[in-house]
Design a protein around this nucleic acid. Structure first.
Lengths: 259, 259
DNA sequence: CGATTATTTGACCAGCTTCAAACAGTGTGG
DNA sequence: CCACACTGTTTGAAGCTGGTCAAATAATCG
């Protein structure tokens, strides 16, 4: 069971047919080296991608040459499965580490969406989560101090990794470079280095070249004020309705896909 | 034809039945005074709302008492039509001016979505636009100077108003207070006042109490580097696929609603 | 008119950026 | 295996941007 399946299973009950269909859809797998664009802003991608292993990010370049990271993609995350509507990517996606990537032709997504209401629901759910994460980042950049914001981002990544059963063992490490965190938090590399030094001094993290380790996640969460509510994770999260009540906007699709 | 219809018509071809159904759905109209919450974070709303006249915003309160504005809602915009999945609002929505608001019970939305594929598609499209706008704001807060960022936000609002045929006549005025722009841009009220003074001195805007006027939109766009690409407006925007190609993820829904 | 809300202005300071240089790992070719 | 280049991180110094505090001004409302 790959991380993509595990992620979708958080949002909807997948039956054997769903699992088989998703397994087939993600069977076209490739290794991609670190630092490669999977999708380039302005270009029409020919397929959607799902990260099965490694880290990637969505980003935009700004006129002065800077980069703004809009989201991290961890194993299980897809890039723009829903954006098949668009003619042209409105942001780029790049690998941050070597990645195992499955590519899924748009027509396969279309087929899954039409025939597999559970999958369909889970995909749209993940769009809502993406939006909630963006909102939280916007709050962070605007209103949190640099150290708390960086800590918050790190906590969020661990919460998301945890949700797909990754990232916690053996040593709570993220393979992120400082320049990546800087482009996420809207800080300069130099200042981000100082912020990490402060967090290190406070014993909240350990960091090295392209690596951030969290010896005590609970302490970092407390420091940053992180709560996982907005990630809409099931079970632990009171915002999420019981799964049985989900089909609201898709009732007719379910009926249509019946025998 | 109300602004909600006009907005949805940007995304999909609405037939007579669609228009009639939307008209009926938005017939429960109320006047709401300025500064009232339509939706409160943490509370389950009992209906979705559509702004027919006036300005509103989505916001979150942060622990230190500050407010972070996450989106502006202009006539035609709905608040969280898609969020009927959630048990509990993850942000609040408040009116900024007196508003005319239609409330739509969730089951009506469900019905429209199931029976009216054109409407369904248009609603999801607007979710993608919301996400694109959030991304652009995140870039702005992180990487744009205060004056350009504020100018960019103003340009965006005019572009969105323009798309539903509003806001340009008679005098290119927005009813925004400085504290609202400050909470959007992540700036203090004091500094925002100085930023507006700079823009005023440069002849790019005129501003008064709860009012920002733009005498020459093209100049402000040039100053801020604004391009409307990310708003995914049809026609003028090469990112948007021909409407006929839209049904991708909803093909089965269309079939289900047929005769 | 007085009370309230919105905006402006000034003074001072903190946080962050920029520039510049040093430093430390990592990989590469001789 | 070492020398060299390269990338990523650290550190210092100087300066700008924007925050905070405080008070003045202006518009709106009752």
């Amino acid at each position: 069971m790959n991380p993509f399946l595990r992620k979708l299973a958080l949002r909807a009950n997948l039956d054997d047919g769903d699992v088989a269909a998703l397994g087939a859809a993600t069977s076209d797998v490739a290794q991609v080296e670190a630092g490669r664009d999977l999708v380039s802003e302005g270009v029409r991608p020919d397929a959607a991608y799902v990260i099965l292993d490694g880290f990637a990010c969505r980003y935009k370049l700004v006129p002065d040459g800077g980069r703004s990271i809009l989201a991290y993609l961890v194993p299980g995350d897809g890039c723009d499965l829903h954006a098949s509507l668009l003619n042209r990517a409105i942001h780029s996606v790049a690998t941050l580490t070597p990645c195992t990537v499955a590519s899924i032709p748009y027509r396969t997504i279309k087929g899954l969406a039409a025939l597999r209401p559970n999958i369909y629901r889970a995909l749209w759910w993940s769009v809502l989560v993406d939006e909630a994460v963006l909102q939280e980042w916007l709050v962070g950049v605007g209103r949190r101090s640099a150290d708390k914001q960086v800590a918050h981002i790190i906590c969020e990544l661990f919460a998301r990794l945890n949700a797909v059963g990754l990232g916690l063992e053996p040593e709570y490490r993220l393979p992120l470079a400082q320049s990546e965190l800087a482009d996420t938090a809207g800080l300069s590399n130099v200042h981000l280095s100082r912020v990490l030094a402060d967090l290190r001094r406070a014993g909240l993290i350990e960091s090295g070249r392209k690596s951030v380790r969290v010896p005590n996640l609970a302490r970092l969460q407390e420091f940053s004020g992180f709560t996982p509510d907005y990630l809409l994770l099931p079970g632990r999260d009171p915002a999420v309705e019981a799964l049985g009540a989900l089909p609201q906007m898709t009732g007719q699709v379910r009926a249509a896909s019946g025998p």
